[in-house]
């Protein structure tokens, strides 16, 4: 069976290259409702059939009212929405038109939570912060097929603060809104800011292509941010898991430590 991909689009040039492929659903970061993306889409720019909207901003009351307005005029090609804010879940509880996928970033690390949310949504994106084995356990227990974050840079911090602008203001600099951070240990990260906040990503893309073997998966989410069109085409079209080219497995191989004494 062919894998279904949910392709989080950040580069408009990619769409025509993949629009004919039946197993690809495009996921568009929506202007005013996302953080961590240099390119976002206005609703009227989204013309692909069966398109999904990506809304990962945590919304204040004003944001939630704007989102309600956006829902009123959604064109018919919008099939679903992937979102983080529970307020959106509440608004969409009675909506049977849109497919709903909850991507509660850094939560949903266990099957009980996921099955609870599945009472309200069509699917849930499994946390990126758990091991391969934990992912399998969740899939085994899940009452509906789930979405797995299968490839891409991982968001590891989301701040409401405009951290790059603040740096520029403080030091009278002009650092760009997508930049590279390096800590004292030499670890690198990508940092992206817009007016709604700042997101830090892993420097390297997480390679979870091996997850394509797993059962009970509705979509494999591919985040194209910071990847070239050629890289994305290769990731989707090659059956190989590309582990040599993309060796970074993020947190999927060993469990994190809860208490220092466990070390």
């Amino acid at each position: 069976m062919k894998n279904n991909y949910l392709l989080l689009v950040t580069n408009k040039t990619l769409i025509p290259k993949l629009s004919k492929e039946s197993n690809i659903t495009f996921l568009f970061p929506v202007e005013e409702f996302t953080v961590g993306f240099p390119n976002t889409f206005k609703i009227e720019e989204i013309r692909e059939p069966h398109a999904y909207l990506f809304v990962n901003r945590l919304l204040d009351n004003e944001g939630i009212e704007s989102f309600k307005s956006l829902l009123k005029d959604l064109p018919s090609n919008i099939e679903g929405i992937v979102f983080d804010d529970i307020g959106i879940l509440q608004i969409l509880k009675e909506n049977t038109t849109l497919k709903k996928i909850l991507f509660l970033n850094h939560f949903n690390c266990n099957y009980k939570s996921i099955n609870t949310y599945l009472e309200y949504v069509d699917s849930v994106v499994v946390s990126t912060d758990i091991t391969d084995m934990e992912v399998s356990e969740i899939l085994e227990h899940a009452i509906n097929p789930l979405v797995l974050y299968t490839f891409g840079h991982v968001s590891i911090m989301y701040s409401r603060r405009q951290l790059i602008s603040n740096y520029n203001e403080h030091f009278k600099k002009n650092v760009e809104s997508i930049s590279t951070l390096t800590n004292d240990l030499g670890s690198h990260f990508k940092i992206v800011e817009n007016k709604y906040g700042t997101v830090i990503y892993t420097d390297k893309p997480f390679n979870g292509l091996r997850y394509r073997e797993k059962k009970n998966v509705w979509y494999h989410l591919i985040n194209t941010l910071l990847l070239s069109d050629e890289e994305i085409l290769e990731i989707i079209h090659k059956k190989d898991n590309l582990t040599e080219k993309y060796p970074y497995t993020y947190l999927s191989e060993s469990e994190t430590i809860v208490r220092i004494k466990e070390r």
């Binding site: 939560f107 590891i156 911090m157 701040s159 809860v258």
Partner: peptide, 23 residues
């Protein structure tokens, strides 16, 4: 926190200590 609480796993990535489980 710099981040929204619960939306940060810098600690997990850099030190393998789980920020959302008390580390």
């Amino acid at each position: 926190c710099t981040s929204f609480s619960g939306k940060c796993v810098l600690s997990n990535v850099v030190t393998n200590r789980d920020s959302n489980r008390g580390g």
